[in-house]
């Protein structure tokens, strides 16, 4: 009898962890079984199975992300080339603003921690406080740490994840260092979920690599719109709100997806670019010469689909 119960408990916990890995797709099954199994052992800490998310407010993107960005766990954002780091930093900071806003609505004015590998800041520039403020971030609540080594940066990130203070933690790493491979990303992901903090891994000029992140985005620059004039028309030749070309490279549900977004610092939210402009930008984005060595590696639409489903990448680090 006792043996039987232990076996059942083992199977249940395995099922549960599989469901957690698949993240929400079949979580409904497990609680149902568990609830039915009154005689089984219950674990001390159990959380509500529904994942808390922060929606973007853009239907097509939220569908792909199954509701929005997770409020705990790892999300990876990368850019292909160093010169695109401005756009990627813009997207990451916009997410930080959104997370900060969310915490503020709950009554907390939470700080944001930005951990940066020293090399990354040297290559792509230091964060600039007035710029961050004009971008919508509560810059006085931004803590910035520059770590000499990747290991130090990871240590700081782990320490910060155990403190339930930060609205979000940005970990900026350059390239694909060997000290941040799949197992380390798994560790960060687990810690971030345990600490209930969203961790944004900002991989500057990095390849796509197998990781435990919920989502991986690639951010490419996109031409901005024009500044609106009071009478509704646009100021010709001006550079308006920052725009991004966002590729959802990894998600749990559907195929890779891309979308053009515009960040409005005043409203503190993303808006999708309208259809016509997106289509025009998509056309620009197709490289004229496919052999261009500087083109990003994730333009998948023009590449032959590999046979079968790619489950894990060869290690880039």
């Amino acid at each position: 009898m006792a043996e039987n119960a232990v076996q059942r408990q083992t199977i249940l916990s395995l099922r549960e962890s599989i469901a957690r890995i698949e993240n929400g797709c079949s979580t409904a099954v497990v609680p149902a079984i568990r609830d039915a199994d009154r005689a089984g052992f219950r674990r001390g800490r159990e959380r509500a199975p529904d994942r808390q998310v922060m929606p973007f407010g853009i239907a097509s993107l939220d569908d792909v992300l199954k509701g929005g960005l997770p409020l705990e766990g790892l999300v990876e954002i990368r850019n292909a080339e160093t010169r695109d780091a401005g756009a990627a930093a813009g997207f990451v900071m916009a997410l930080a603003v959104l997370y900060q806003q969310r915490r503020k609505q709950k009554g907390h004015l939470a700080p944001v921690l930005w951990i940066s590998q020293a090399l990354a800041a040297r290559e792509a520039g230091n964060p600039y406080a007035p710029g961050l403020r004009s971008y919508g971030l509560d810059a006085e609540r931004l803590l910035f740490v520059s770590a000499g080594k990747v290991k130090d940066a990871l240590w700081i990130a782990e320490t910060a994840l155990s403190v339930p203070v930060f609205a979000t933690i940005v970990l900026e790493i350059r390239g694909n260092p060997a000290s941040l491979a799949l197992s380390e990303s798994r560790r960060l992901h687990v810690k971030a979920r345990a600490g209930q903090v969203p961790l944004l891994l900002f991989r500057q000029a990095g390849e796509e690599e197998a990781s435990s992140a919920f989502f991986r985005f690639q951010v490419k620059p996109a031409p901005a719109g024009e500044r609106p004039l009071p009478d509704g028309s646009m100021l010709c030749g001006s550079v308006g709100h920052p725009s991004f070309h966002l590729l959802v490279e990894k998600n749990r549900a559907s195929a890779p997806h891309d979308i053009f977004l515009e960040w409005n610092a005043h409203d503190r939210r993303f808006y999708p670019l309208d259809e016509r402009r997106s289509a025009a930008l998509q056309a620009i984005d197709q490289p004229e010469d496919p052999g261009d060595p500087l083109s990003a590696s994730a333009g998948r639409s023009c590449r032959a689909e590999p046979l079968g489903r790619l489950l894990a990448f060869a290690r880039a680090s």
Binding site: P130, S134, G136
Partner: peptide, 14 residues
Amino acid sequence: GGAFPENRPLRIFA
């Protein structure tokens, strides 16, 4: 309220 109107970059070179 809203963001500051000044137009400054996010990252600056030392």
